[in-house]
Write a protein that binds this DNA or RNA. Structure first.
Length: 258
DNA sequence: ATGGCATTTAAAAAATGA
């Protein structure tokens, strides 16, 4: 089963790129983030025509997450949003069971400017996610938690670490919270496949970042223990970042043994 | 150290992103 994650940065602005990528790579499951569209503006028909059924949690203007499953795969939604902050209206989490695997699709808050209320929200969100992650581990099922974590895990995952120490993507407390989450028993799939390589999933639109390979690794796959030995392959669809009218993120994918 | 670009809403300019 091929599972992909892709921060599309506006699903309508990105529709041609999204459809071309789906057609080219044909993932069984695609987790999308930053739809930037309310539920009624999700391009359902186009997604259907591409051969996918989808569930989504949209929001006007910002955020928004979706899970697409290839036709023939049953998709059963098991939750949207994270517990712990009832007044939180940002659409950043959706979860479903597909093929006996629980898939959590997340868009973690950016947190900048930091310090400040946005970083505080990010830290709280990380704690809420960790709580859900622990529940899933304790439930003893196969789980993939994937999406845009907005966390650079180590210095290896950023082109110029010294420029990012104060940034909400790389601050010590953010990295610490991420590492504590992983330490519950999760596996960072891409890092497991490529222990030493430089791998980036985001390149900002400024200063030819993509052409200079000045990127960040912030889109991750965390696997529960059931899946660590089923991880066959994975990678970044780097070339998609080079397409016209493309997102600033590149899609990332893994292949799990059935 | 700063600003560079892109998207959304909504009709210009602000907010957000990472």
């Amino acid at each position: 089963m091929r599972i992909a994650t892709y921060n599309v940065n506006g699903i309508n602005a990105r529709l041609p790129v999204l459809l071309k990528w789906l057609e080219e790579t044909k993932p069984d499951v695609a987790c999308l983030q930053e739809l930037k569209a309310p539920d009624e503006k999700i391009p359902k028909q186009e997604i259907e025509n591409a051969g996918y059924t989808a569930i989504w949690h949209g929001q006007k203007r910002w955020n928004g997450v979706a899970i697409l499953a290839k036709n023939g795969l049953e998709i059963e939604e098991t939750g949207r949003g994270l517990a712990g902050e009832p007044e939180d209206e940002q659409s950043r989490y959706i979860e479903a069971v597909i093929n006996d695997t629980t898939i959590g699709c997340l868009y973690l808050p950016n947190g900048n400017p930091a310090p400040g209320p946005k970083l505080d929200y990010k830290m709280r969100w990380l704690q809420r996610l960790s709580k859900r992650a622990k529940e899933l581990l304790d439930s003893d099922v196969a789980v993939v938690l994937t999406g845009d974590y907005n966390v650079i895990p180590t210095e290896k995952d950023v082109y110029k670490p010294e420029r990012w120490f104060d940034d909400a993507l790389f601050r010590p407390e953010v990295r610490k919270a991420f590492h504590e989450l992983v330490a519950q028993g999760w596996t960072d799939a891409i890092r497991k496949l490529y222990p030493e390589e430089t791998i980036y999933t985001f390149f900002d639109y400024f200063r030819n970042a993509y052409q200079r390979n000045a990127g960040l690794r912030i889109d991750h796959f965390l696997l529960s223990p059931h899946l660590t030995n089923k991880l066959k392959d994975g990678g970044v669809d780097n070339h998609v970042r080079g397409w016209e009218k493309t997102s600033d993120h590149a899609p990332v994918w893994i292949e799990l043994e059935e």
